[in-house]
Design a protein around this nucleic acid. Structure first.
Lengths: 182, 182
DNA sequence: ACAACCTGTTTAGCATCATGGACGAAATGA
DNA sequence: TCATTTCGTCCATGATGCTAAACAGGTTGT
């Protein structure tokens, strides 16, 4: 549940082949603090954690992104396409069972006339995709464009956006987004 | 230089349309703490920052990844599919011109018999994709499997991996990886 | 054996964070 | 107008992070 900052810090320190004292010296903190953090006996302030990571160097974003356990896991096949959409808009998620994915990959299918909703979507991250079949109208931040098979798109997910199938046949898209939205 | 945790938190809170008190209630902390953090008058412990973000909800990784300035940029269409592959393996990159992408999205085309190379690939991050057409043999960490249209895959890119078209027709895949490899 | 150095851990005390409540300003409603 | 609600900020106090120094165990070298 918790982040296990201690294990993360220990693993990055060892990756860089540093002792607690050496890292402490580079970071301008005490070795004792490194020890306490690695044992999870304190929850460091963001300020001191940043100082520590500056000694490596590594950004806070990277620190919280790295996967410590490194559970090599492979997901294959049709089974991994888990349905999460509605009737008109079918979303199939790749590797849904995998914990802590860095990516959401979807096969999206829009029935003729179907759309992602009346309100535009807006969330963190970036997303993009490629149209496989059919024609889709993509509205991003006020401007619209119709995309056909083979065409692609990419934008910041925080800009309000909406998809709508304006063709007479079903439309299919492969999309990806990071950080994961599902 | 510093991270300006305060401004980040404030912008996140406002994106979600919450007051300091409402966020505090959801997070299980006091409104005063939210106020102090947003003014950068304290450097919150990782533990409390996590509690706060759980109220949104947002991960620490996302929190430190978000770009406060947010340059809205949209990439559309066929133009954005930039060719980067060889003769047998064609890779077209979505939104190649966009700086600092968080995602690599590729349309990959393998001629019959073509492969990603004699040596297996291994790099940081995660990747996945969906087969659109043809049949591809995917080898990840010693085990192989042949995937057909509609099937999907997902794995840690650090595991050595290799793609090979084992069918008689061209194979097409839409893939995504993060962090970006191209 | 012994010293000199390394490792990570522990502890007392001080600095900082986090709480609960009080405060004034601004908006809402009767 | 006056009461009520909600906003963000501020303050005293208790909780916790952080430092400096001591400690125990392991390795190297003389």
């Amino acid at each position: 549940m918790s982040i296990d900052v201690g294990a993360r810090l220990r693993s990055v320190r060892l990756i860089y082949g540093l002792s607690q004292r050496e890292l402490a010296r580079r970071a301008g903190v005490t070795n004792g603090l490194i020890s306490l953090i690695e044992q999870n006996r304190v929850s460091p302030s963001v300020g001191s954690l940043k100082k520590v990571l500056d000694g490596v160097p590594m950004s806070l974003a990277e620190f919280f992104t790295i996967n410590v356990e490194e559970t090599p896991q492979i997901f294959y096949g049709d089974d991994e396409l888990v349905e999460i959409g509605s009737d008109d808009v079918s979303l199939r998620l790749v590797a849904a069972r995998r914990p802590a994915r860095q990516l959401t990959i979807l096969r999206e299918r829009y029935a003729p006339g179907a759309a992602t909703g009346d309100d535009a979507l807006a969330h963190r991250g970036e997303e993009g995709g490629v149209v496989i079949r059919g024609r889709i109208e993509l509205t991003v931040g006020g401007t619209s464009r119709v995309l056909g098979p083979g065409e692609a798109y990419y934008f910041s997910s925080s800009i309000p956006h909406r998809f709508r199938n304006v063709g007479r046949e079903p439309c299919e898209i492969i999309s990806a987004s990071a950080p994961p939205t599902f």
